[in-house]
Write a protein that binds this DNA or RNA. Structure first.
Length: 170
DNA sequence: AAGTATACCAACCGCGAGCGC
DNA sequence: GGCGCTCGCGGTTGGTATACT
């Protein structure tokens, strides 16, 4: 029976940019019921939006402690290293960057870093990584990443499933 | 000043995984 | 164990702002 699979009803659901009023309603309902059961959250808020859309809005904009804009050099460097480590696991990478969302990091990567990396790698392969202290420095870097991730949240790089030595980054 | 190209961000889509019945 | 539902993720698209010619 054509399960919804979490898809939105394209015809009936409200789409496009969120209004301040919608944001407010959503935030209120989440404050009361918590950020779960997104479909019912959407219904309770009286929003003509699908749960998915509400979740996205909450995760990327309404959550407390969200940092907006200005990704620092340190953050950028961390993103680059984590991406080497994890690939396009944006949610995992975001987990290492407090206040940053996966969507924001993904966008930042696609618009800034992917080009940057390409530029760096094209002319002389990995000049970036072969500066003084190269391999060793990298190992140390990865080490610190691992440490940070242990200290950080409970998500620990998916428990070394993505082990540092596995994909030839070292 | 107008038109065009590029960059950036927000939102949508489809899929797979997890969970409860 | 199978089925349906919900959630979360990653890829992609669309709209707007800014830079450039």
């Amino acid at each position: 029976m054509a399960p919804m699979r979490g898809r939105c009803n394209k015809k009936e659901a409200n789409r496009g940019a969120w209004t301040a009023e919608e944001d407010q309603k959503l935030a209120q309902v989440i404050e009361i019921h918590g950020p779960k059961r997104w479909r019912s959250v959407a219904a309770k808020a009286g929003l003509n939006r699908c749960g998915k859309s509400c979740r996205l809005r909450w995760m990327n904009h309404l959550r407390p402690n969200i940092k907006r804009g200005n990704i620092s050099d340190q953050e950028e460097d961390l993103i680059v290293r984590l991406h080497k480590l994890l690939g396009n696991r944006w949610s995992l990478i975001a987990g290492r960057l407090p206040g940053r969302t996966d969507n924001e990091i993904k966008n930042y990567w696609n618009s800034h870093l992917s080009k940057k990396i390409k530029q760096n790698e094209e002319p002389v392969r990995s000049s970036r990584w072969q500066e003084p202290g190269t391999v060793k420095t990298k190992v140390q870097d990865m080490d610190s990443v691992a440490k940070r991730s242990e200290e950080g949240t409970s998500k620990t790089l998916e428990d070394s499933k993505y082990s540092f030595g596995g994909d030839g980054i070292l």
